[in-house]
């Protein structure tokens, strides 16, 4: 009965990542897409907040959006998994609902 949450904005610009992480339930998945992927970078200001949730929830970043912004999987906070659009679809199908933090 868990939820897939999507975050599409940089945490440096909007509060949506913080808000999302404040509202996730155990077993949920969080997928960072579009500018949201910058929040997953290792060493960034938000790395700690992501790492703290990673475990109770699974954190993902959309690979094509990482690539478009010159990032790769090894740049990310440990434990953040990279998925492509097919993986995005799988996550949406596996979870019971999708909640977009716009």
């Amino acid at each position: 009965m868990s939820t897939l949450h999507t975050v599409n904005k940089s945490p440096f610009e909007r509060s949506s990542l913080k808000s999302c992480l404040d509202h996730v339930s155990a077993g949920d998945a969080v997928l960072l897409i579009e500018d949201g992927v910058v929040g997953a970078r290792k060493g960034s200001q938000f790395a700690g907040a992501l790492a703290a949730k990673n475990g109770a929830c699974a954190i993902y970043a959309l690979g094509p959006d990482l690539a478009a912004r010159g990032m790769k999987a090894s740049d990310l906070v440990d434990g953040v998994k990279v998925v492509d659009y097919a993986g995005f679809v799988d996550l949406a199908a596996e979870k019971s609902r999708v909640c977009a933090w716009l």
Binding site: T6, N8, K9, A92, A93, R97, V98, A100
Partner: peptide
């Protein structure tokens, strides 16, 4: 079965 929203 699933509704997915894309926005700003």
């Amino acid at each position: 079965d699933r509704l997915v929203v894309f926005g700003d």
